[in-house]
Amino acid sequence: MSDVKKFMYINRKAPYGTIYAWEALEVVLIGAAFEQDVSLAFMDDGVFQLVKGQDTTELGIKNFSPTYSALGDYDVNKIYVEKESLEARGLTLDDLMPLKYEDEDDDWAEKDSIRVVTAAEMAEILEQQDVVLSF
């Protein structure tokens, strides 16, 4: 199919403090129905969206962090996290939720969706996209 475009959703905001993170996630889930080549990028405070152990019980608002684990079901399995943004926030890959997908072309083997990339690598990935949507 030649009409498949490369879509990149950039996430740069922390969850809960503003509505951007949840809105972006909803747009990604809706957009997944159009069967395009979708990637997500997390940079700046966006990396906080993926931190594990979120518990919003005392805030009385929805904890949407479990929804990121459903992205694999929606065939969204290229999730790039910028290394520099993690480091500036004292975070490592171990602090993030282990997002997985099942690889259809490899007997449904379970694989990691998150790839930590440097700013230079991220720049290259952004160059390759047909459409970039920033949140």
């Binding site: 922390a14 969850p15 809960y16 906080f48 931190v51 594990k52 152990g53 979120q54 518990d55 919003t56 019980t57 005392e58 805030l59 608002i61 904890n63 962090s65 004292g90």
Partner: peptide, 14 residues
Amino acid sequence: LGPDLKARGVGEDK
């Protein structure tokens, strides 16, 4: 504020 830490997955050990 503790509840805001918990919501964001930031443990008190951090």
